[in-house]
Computed example of a mutant assay.
Amino acid sequence: MTCLYPKINDQLFIQVPSSDASEAEVEYRSRIAELEDEAFLIEIPMQESSGRLKKLHIGDELSVYFMGEGGIKNYFYTHVLGFKEDVIRMVRVHKPAKDEILKIQRRSFLRVSAELELAVRTAAGIRFLVRTEDIGGGGTSFWTDVSTPLEVGDRLECWLLIPYRNGLNEHAYFEAEVVRMKELDTGRSVAMLKFVNILDGERQKIIRFCFERQFDFRNR
């Protein structure tokens, strides 16, 4: 499926990496005003809840998504190139290559290899700490050993520590079910989980991490 660029008047949803945790979580809304060969011209991003405009500077990094057909979110990274004064002031941002735009489909979540810290509690109240093997918007897997026996069908409460590119860490909470156990030659096992109860906001934290990780892989 060919990835399409956003069109004039398409809405953009923008987050601006910041060392301030509360600011980094703010989502701003903007709109494509003009298209250039190497850039998009967008309206000054605005926080919908407060009407506050976001002051941007040349070089600022932006994490952006726009909605495609069927509710598919198209994510990309960009940065501010400059400004254009017209009837309204516009921000000129770098136009990414088409292969730098990642589609996140509702039922087909991106999954990436990642060793993240995961705190787990079983239905019996046993707690343990593990490292993930991979993570995605629909589930995760982690390494475990015989001291923490698990079986297919077990329900687990999980707290995932997510490190972002801007240096901030977030926790995502979810409930998951063990769907497969894979034994390794080392005597350890890999527990494969699917999410069975997760708030959309928690899932978005994970999807954001996966997007950042995939973006980093592509630019190595």
Rank of each mutant, 00 (worst) to 15 (best):
V190R: 14
G167H: 07
T78N: 04
I198V: 15
V120Q: 00
I207T: 05
Q105W: 03
C158R: 01
I32W: 02
S189P: 02
Y77R: 12
P17L: 02
Y65W: 07
K103C: 11
G187H: 08
V93A: 06
V152N: 04
T186R: 02
V112Q: 11
Q214E: 15
P6Q: 06
L53I: 07
T148N: 14
E85I: 09
H79T: 12
K84G: 03
S147D: 12
Y65E: 00
E69F: 03
T140D: 03
L193H: 05
E38P: 01
K95H: 03
F174I: 00
S50P: 04
N197A: 13
A114D: 01
A21E: 13
E61N: 12
P17Y: 00
R121C: 10
W159I: 14
D86H: 09
S108F: 11
G167F: 02
E69I: 06
R218T: 04
G82P: 06
Q105R: 15
K182Y: 06
T148C: 11
Q105I: 02
Q15F: 05
F174Q: 01
R121W: 09
I198T: 03
G125A: 05
T148F: 14
M1A: 11
R127G: 12
R52E: 15
L110Q: 06
D86V: 08
V93K: 14
T144S: 10
M46W: 03
N74P: 08
E34K: 15
E133K: 08
K7L: 10
D216Y: 04
D10F: 08
Q15G: 02
F209M: 01
I207L: 15
A176F: 13
A39K: 02
F211D: 00
P149Q: 07
L81M: 09
N74F: 12
R111G: 04
D145V: 01
I88S: 09
G137C: 00
C158V: 09
L102W: 02
E38T: 09
I206H: 01
Q47M: 07
E170G: 05
E175V: 12
E202N: 07
T122N: 05
R31C: 10
F142K: 01
M90H: 10
V120R: 04
V196Y: 05
S63H: 14
V178F: 00
R121E: 15
M67Y: 11
H171I: 14
T132D: 06
H171A: 08
G187F: 10
E100D: 11
E177S: 09
D99E: 14
L53A: 12
Y75D: 05
L53V: 06
E36S: 11
E133G: 13
C3F: 12
R52F: 12
L4G: 09
D20E: 13
C3P: 06
E43W: 05
E48F: 08
S113F: 09
E175F: 10
I126H: 13
L53G: 07
E117C: 06
A21Q: 10
G136P: 01
D10N: 11
L199I: 08
